[in-house]
Design a protein around this nucleic acid. Structure first.
Length: 890
RNA sequence: GGGUGGUUAGCUCAGUUGGUUUAGAGCGUCUGGUUUACACCCAGAAGGUCACAGGUUCGAUUCCUGUACCACCCACCA
């Protein structure tokens, strides 16, 4: 016999091990079955799993288990990401703290530091692996990958080479966002904008007044820009020169008229430019072929051009420069309330300084990509796959956001000045340059930079499917690798990419870019974006604040992985953030326990009847069915239908709720209660088996544990069981309607009891007393019941302590319709019926109008029209019945 | 500055192309209860002008327009 409460701690690890050893997670590339593939977004190998990962794992596991049970060849490929900047900065900080080494890069040198990072990553990957298992993730560990694996590195190098050959990768002097703290370039997407209040100074610059929040960059400014239509400056012409007294003496300055760079309504309407340290200024300088000069070095200190300020860090120099200009009488005014946004590195949190550097870029506008028999740019391909619906994003609104992002997309800077990552496969010897993974010979030096981490993760859906043994054969081309890797052939494109909406641009867009280019295929058919987990107060969960932060590793032992999974899935809709807190998780723990106890009850009934639950065979020995049995079997069919349809359409929350409500509100509260009068063990077992199947993707552990007790003899684990299909022959709407009527009557009697204040001591028999007295009427919907008639029911009730007095009678086959006779208050009934008729007629007219509407019919899906027609038919039948009954009154 | 989402019961949220939902759930609150699984339970109750203002419609929480507040994203305001 099962214990009184479900204990997840005692089962989960054992069950997971059983699944893993049974080979159920392992996908077969030779299988003839339709593939279903998810590439797990690889967690950063920098530490621990958090709730964001837990949501991802729960969602993807549900998709995968459902597909597997549906008979698809399901592959869920797990892995980890080397997370270049993030990892390097974590390890450097760690060394600084633990080993008290100020500059770990200088201290250890490249080779040794990379080794140390690799060690750290090894440990972290092991932690993550065990944590993913704790969530019950049914992923194929035999195919686990890591973004720095040799075979993935091969793919990175091959793609780089191909892009270089196509002229899509180029090296150039461009303005980039430089993180002086991490000493590397960061990409546009790795920048956060933080609001900051800073004094906004206006200075006299020759005859002009210019404003700036960054006077320390202004040493080399020799151009003053204004809008060509600005009336205030119409006496100046483009190219006019003048001499202005400036920070370190007079400068020769030139007037520039430009309509793109300047907003005449802002400030004084004119500005000086600093092309080396400002994006807009850089672009203007590029257009006009203006000279540019570096003012701030790569460590964030002023260069010799600053004269007496040279060598000072920015924060120190700024007030001093202002002071000097003030002394010279050039400070016009200071706005202390000015608020602007400063760029901060997402990872290192250092203030980003635009700098001009030689970097590697991917050209997103060059139309050299072969796609659908046309030459397109990377940008165009990225737009095309979404616009043509090759890839569908869920929820759809993110498509708009995606397009907007692409419209503003500029060339992607892929080189990083850090050591942890894929080394750029380019070699130099004097002026010569070669692209390749290995040195072309003596005297060649490899580019010291590494690639942006998203370069390799952009290949994730397919680089993970390349056969690692083939990847060692350097004679093969990229196309050969794709053609000859069985996994790639079977499992690509993947089915669905499930990830947080926060990395739509970072990652999803980049996978589309890299994969379409490198393989000629889309990386995935669907993108399912989940929301971010927040605290009860709607704040972001942060590790730095443990009071608000829920750690999945503390929750799982306490409430079980199943409860955690449900709490993150039900009540959550794609693309929207959701709040998680302990009471919610406890609520689903209660549900798991309810299911557990319902199963105990079923097993007890079997024992009582001398039936072996494992011996219950589908179809055989069911015995005679009561109305309640038929109603249950019938509603199970619609449940299967709804669950299947819901999961197919990724409506996980709704489907979870439907299953929850079926189990608790229907199966437990009604069917099991009715079974206390008289039970049919075969039906009980059959129903429970179906329920456990349908719930398995959501809560795999408890259902698997129950399956061990109720599954047929000789059956394998639940994870391998086929998904239930509805049986038409079990559908019995009459039985459902009759049971519903019974439920309605019982409910009505109960509320009657409450209304007349029957003493609590009287408990259930009080219902009977009330009924027997014949004084009370039950008014329910259009029916007014005289309870004297119902009193008949008590006679046939034989249950020792009937919880629902009327129930047993029902099971004995008393025709419920009889109860409706002997109506007392005829006028009331008539009124009710008439009201119901009026409402129904109105409704039917509405539905008819809808079906008659051409626009609706043209736009609606066939199944929607079907349901509308069904509504109409049902309504008309009901109306007919009402009419008949009304006729009786005449 | 541009864009997206949100605003439904004390709290957290559902609500599938306008009507059979006189607005639903979970938690919390209150009342009553240990009954052949389950107190991680059972039976009930209270609690909502579906943010506001207009419009379309026979009918709007649902569609349209505007307003307010909240959140997020994007952008080169010096």
């Amino acid at each position: 016999m099962l214990p009184k409460a479900y204990d997840p701690k005692a089962c989960e690890d054992r069950i997971y091990q059983m699944w893993e050893e049974s080979g159920a997670f392992k996908a077969d590339a030779k299988s003839k079955k339709e593939p279903f593939v998810i590439s797990m977004p690889p967690p950063n190998a920098t530490g621990q799993l958090h709730l964001g990962h837990a949501v991802m794992l729960a969602l993807e596991d549900i998709f995968t288990r459902f597909a597997r049970m549906q008979g698809k060849e399901a592959l869920w490929l797990p892995g980890t990401d080397h997370a270049a900047i993030a990892t390097e900065s974590v390890v450097i900080k760690k060394i600084q703290k633990e080993e008290k080494i100020k500059d770990p890069r200088a201290h250890y040198g490249r080779e040794k530091l990379v080794e140390k990072i690799a060690e750290f990553v090894q440990a972290s990957r092991a932690t993550i692996r065990s944590q993913v298992r704790k969530m019950g993730a049914s992923c194929d560990w035999s195919r686990e990958r890591y973004t720095l694996d040799a075979s993935l590195n091969r793919c990175v190098n091959e793609v780089f080479k191909k892009m270089y050959g196509d002229g899509l990768i180029y090296r150039g002097q461009r303005i980039v966002s430089w993180d002086p703290k991490m000493q590397t370039t960061v990409s546009d997407d790795e920048i956060e904008h933080v609001e900051e209040k800073a004094p906004f100074y206006t200075f006299q610059y020759g005859p002009f007044q210019i404003s700036t929040a960054r006077p320390e960059t202004k040493f080399g400014d020799k151009y003053v820009v204004m809008h060509p239509d600005d009336e205030r400056y119409k006496q100046y012409k483009d190219g006019d020169t003048f001499t202005a007294e400036w920070i370190n003496g007079p400068v020769q300055a030139t007037v520039i008229k430009d309509s793109d760079a300047i907003d005449p309504a802002f400030g004084t309407g004119c500005m000086t430019i600093t092309p080396w340290h400002d994006m807009t200024d850089f672009e203007l300088a590029e257009r006009r072929k203006l000279p540019r000069e570096q003012i701030i070095d790569f460590t964030g200190r002023l260069m010799p051009v600053a004269g007496e300020f040279a060598g000072m860090p920015i924060e120190e120099a700024r007030p001093k420069v202002v002071e000097k200009l003030k002394e010279k009488g050039l400070l016009v005014k200071v706005d202390e309330n000015y608020v602007h946004r400063i760029a901060v590195s997402y990872r290192g949190k250092g203030v980003v300084e635009p700098q001009i550097k030689e970097q590697w870029f991917i050209d997103v506008n060059k139309p050299v990509v072969e796609w659908k028999k046309k030459k397109m740019s990377l940008k165009q391909v990225m737009q095309d796959v979404i616009r043509s619906k090759d890839i569908r994003i869920i929820p759809e609104r993110f498509e708009k956001i995606y397009f907007h992002w692409i419209d503003n997309l500029r060339d992607w800077c892929v080189s990083r000045q850090i050591w942890w990552g894929h080394r750029i496969p380019v070699w130099y010897k004097g002026e010569e340059k070669r692209v390749g993974a290995v040195s072309p010979g003596p005297g060649w030096m490899q580019d010291p930079d590494t690639l942006d981490t998203w370069f390799s993760s952009g290949l994730w859906t397919w680089s993970t499917l390349i056969d690692p043994t083939l990847a060692t054969d350097t004679s093969l081309s990229l196309q050969d690798l794709l053609d000859r890797s069985p996994d790639f052939q079977k499992f690509h494109p993947t089915t669905v990419m499930e990830t947080g909406y926060d990395i739509l641009f970072f990652w999803v867009a980049r996978m589309i870019l890299m994969t379409t280019y490198a393989t000629g295929q889309i990386p995935f058919k669907h993108v399912y974006l989940h929301g971010l987990v927040r605290t009860r107060d709607g704040k972001k969960m942060s590790k730095s604040d443990p009071s608000t932060c829920i750690d999945p590793l503390e929750i799982i032992p306490k409430y079980g992985a199943d409860a955690l999974r449900l709490s993150m899935i039900v009540g959550q809709s794609p693309g929207n953030d959701f709040r998680l807190y302990e009471e919610k998780i406890a609520g689903y723990r209660n549900f798991i326990n309810k299911l557990w106890n319902a199963s105990r009850f079923v097993l007890m009934q079997c024992e009582k009847a001398g039936v072996d639950p494992k011996g219950v065979g589908d179809g055989a020995g069911v015995g005679s069915l009561s109305v309640a049995d038929r109603a249950l079997l019938s509603s199970l069919q619609s449940l299967i239908d709804d669950a299947t349809q819901g999961l197919k359409e990724y409506r996980l929350s709704e489907t979870g709720e439907r299953l929850y409500s079926f189990v608790w509100d229907y199966f437990c509260d009604w069917y099991l209660e009715l079974s206390k009068g008289e039970s049919n063990p075969a039906v009980l077992v059959h129903a429970l088996r179906t329920i456990v199947h349908l719930l398995h993707p959501y809560c795999p552990f408890v259902t698997e544990e129950l399956w061990a007790s109720i599954g047929p003899k000789g059956s394998g684990p639940l994870i391998r069981e086929p998904w239930p299909t509805p049986e038409k022959k079990s559908i019995d709407r009459d039985a459902e309607a009759q049971l519903q009527l019974l439920i309605d009557i019982i409910t009505a009697v109960r509320s009657l009891r409450a209304e007349y204040g029957v003493t609590p001591e009287a408990k259930i028999p009080s219902t009977v007393h009330a009924v027997r007295s014949g004084e009370f009427l039950v008014q329910h919907q259009a029916h007014v019941l005289r309870l004297a008639n119902v009193s008949e029911l008590t006679v046939v009730s034989k249950a020792p302590a009937p919880r629902h007095g009327v129930v047993s009678a029902f099971l004995k086959g008393v025709d419920i319709q009889l109860l409706l006779e002997g109506v007392v208050d005829l006028t009331k009934v008539k009124e009710n019926l008439e009201a119901e008729r009026a409402q129904l007629q109105k409704f039917l007219a509405g539905v008819q109008a809808k079906l008659g509407n051409e626009q609706f019919v043209a736009r609606a899906k066939p199944e929607v029209i079907e349901t509308e027609k069904q509504k109409l038919a049902d309504g008309e039948a009901k109306l007919k019945k009402i009419e008949e009954r009304l006729k009786a009154f005449a």
